[in-house]
Computed example of a mutant assay.
Amino acid sequence: MTPPERELVRDRERTRRAVLEAAELAFEQKGAKASLAEIAALAGVSKSGLMHHFRTREELIAQVIKHSVSRAWEEVRAHVDLAENRPGKFTRGYVRAFTGGSEYLTRVFSPSGLLTALGTLGAAEPSEVLQQADARAWNEAFDADGLPPGRALVIRYAAEGLIAAMNSPYLTPEQLARAREELLALTEVEQL
């Protein structure tokens, strides 16, 4: 691939990502009322430019779901401390990301966030296959992390509950910090 061809591919990828991020924001703010024209304007492209990358609204919604799943994985991986060479490394990264370490996840998982908005868009069919594959991948990552399976489940779903309660009057920053500390402590297991 020549340098101009590589630059063109990078531009396409940047434009596609800009559209997906704009769509996330628009759906989060307006739900089903978000128009393709509004999404295109947020992304800084024309509506025809958006349609070049995503032929239909349904395709765009499906790709937003796929993009948000991919971003969740990126956020968790970014919070894994590679120097922690003991069981629970992945789970600790998950706890860190889901208990305030990731601005993206905090926004997406808030009660008025992207996940709630996507649930109102009628995108169930393309997302079911993706959800099944994603659920398997998360389960496999936790299963391979070296923690007792029941403990990993408790930690995982506690972290998800905390992220949903963040920025609400029901969870103070002090309570969040204490809960995060407790969850991280639960990831430490005695090595035989």
Rank of each mutant, 00 (worst) to 15 (best):
M1Q: 14
T2G: 14
P3C: 10
P3A: 15
E5I: 07
R10W: 12
R10D: 11
R12N: 13
E21P: 03
E24H: 04
L25Y: 10
A26G: 03
F27G: 12
E28R: 09
G31K: 13
A34S: 11
S35K: 02
L36G: 12
E38V: 01
A40G: 08
A41V: 08
L42T: 05
L42M: 15
G44P: 06
V45M: 06
S48I: 06
H53N: 13
R55V: 09
E59S: 04
E59Q: 07
L60S: 10
L60A: 02
A62D: 15
A62F: 08
Q63Y: 07
Q63N: 15
Q63L: 10
K66M: 10
H67E: 14
S70V: 00
A78K: 06
H79A: 09
V80C: 14
L82W: 04
L82R: 14
P87S: 07
G88T: 03
K89Y: 00
T91D: 07
Y94Q: 09
F98T: 02
T99S: 15
L105K: 02
R107K: 13
R107G: 11
V108N: 03
S110H: 11
P111A: 09
G113T: 01
L114P: 00
L115Q: 11
T120Y: 05
L121H: 03
A124L: 07
E125S: 13
S127H: 01
L130D: 01
Q131I: 03
A135D: 10
N139C: 03
N139P: 00
A141W: 00
F142W: 13
F142A: 02
G146S: 11
P148K: 10
G150Y: 00
L153Y: 14
L153C: 14
L153M: 12
R156H: 13
A159Q: 01
E160Y: 02
A164D: 05
A164L: 08
A165W: 04
A165K: 10
S168H: 06
S168C: 09
S168P: 02
L171V: 00
P173Q: 06
P173S: 12
E174T: 05
Q175A: 15
A177I: 10
R180K: 15
L184C: 04
A185Q: 06
L186K: 07
T187R: 01
L192E: 11
